[in-house]
């Protein structure tokens, strides 16, 4: 947990509000685990010869669940929880649905990557990664199964985790980063652009104030944190390209939020 603010100094109210908005990790974990278990069960029942009739009924969704497919379902479900999180944010609520969609279309992959990175930060092990379902996967086994592109992204992710571990990014700072990513003032054609710009500025100020208050011995901490955002953006862009490529080769499960987001940005 993050260190306490020195006596007499206050954690900015906005930062506390962001932490309040954070989702219950165990609840998200159990929801997603249950969803994936259901998918696997469905698949098993379909592959049993006794269930011929059921096979026919499910004929419209003849997806074979590969490890990659399972990961896509996991990312898809994580996206659902990201949308829920955004909806719980007071500043997000003030926007019309059209603007909300534009913001999410712009940043969904960055939020997914940050979610992954933040989980690895908490996990704190260099030789394994922690999935949103709570499963721990050996890094070596993951890299052995992945192709060149995916391996490169996993390694880039590990480097980013390592950077952030070096100065122990805390949960409050992570919560601020999520908001900086969501309220990106560079998103064009918003109905309420001034609101998004104002929220972005407020989050920046709150994060700066927070780092100076809680980590006064590291005056450059705020800049160091912000420097990681372009790296995160590069990684998320790579992940999108990779997903797009996999989608075109028919390896991404269809009819889900992940695909919808992928399409929205490309059209």
């Amino acid at each position: 947990s993050p260190p306490l603010a020195p006596p007499g100094l206050m954690v900015p109210a906005l930062v506390l509000e962001f932490v309040r908005c954070e989702q219950d990790e165990l609840l998200v974990q159990s929801k997603i685990s249950a969803h994936l278990a259901h998918l696997k069960q469905e698949q098993n029942s379909r592959s049993t010869p006794d269930n011929q009739e059921q096979n026919t009924r499910h004929a419209a969704k003849p997806e074979r669940l590969t490890t990659f497919g399972l990961m896509c379902h996991m990312a898809d479900q994580t996206l659902f929880s990201i949308v829920e999180w955004a909806r719980s944010c007071i500043f997000f609520k003030e926007l019309k649905v059209g603007d909300q969609m534009k913001l999410l279309h712009n940043c969904w992959s960055e939020l997914l990557v940050l979610d992954y990175i933040a989980r690895q930060l908490q996990h704190g092990k260099e030789d394994s990664v922690l999935l949103i379902t709570g499963q721990e996967v050996e890094l070596a086994s993951l890299l052995a199964q992945a192709g060149v592109t995916l391996s490169g992204m996993i390694q880039m992710g590990q480097e980013l985790v390592h950077h952030l571990q070096e100065f122990q990014l805390d949960r409050r700072e992570t919560a601020c980063l999520k908001h900086l990513i969501l309220f990106n003032p560079d998103v064009k054609l918003l109905e309420n652009q001034p609101h998004v710009e104002s929220v972005y500025e407020q989050v920046n100020e709150a994060l700066l104030e927070y780092t100076l208050c809680v980590y006064p011995q590291f005056p450059d901490r705020f800049n160091q944190i912000l420097l990681r955002l372009p790296e995160l953006r590069v990684l998320s862009a790579q992940a999108e390209d990779y997903l797009c490529y996999k989608h075109l080769s028919g390896e991404v499960p269809s009819n889900n939020l992940l695909i919808e987001m992928l399409h929205a940005k490309r059209t």
């Binding site: 949308v83 909806r87 649905v97 969609m101 399409h263």
Partner: peptide, 18 residues
């Protein structure tokens, strides 16, 4: 394009009138 965004729109719209 609108059809592409149907799920996200639904997720953002739901419960709004409650």
């Amino acid at each position: 394009k609108k059809k592409d965004n149907a799920l996200l729109r639904y997720l953002l719209d739901k419960d709004d009138n409650v």
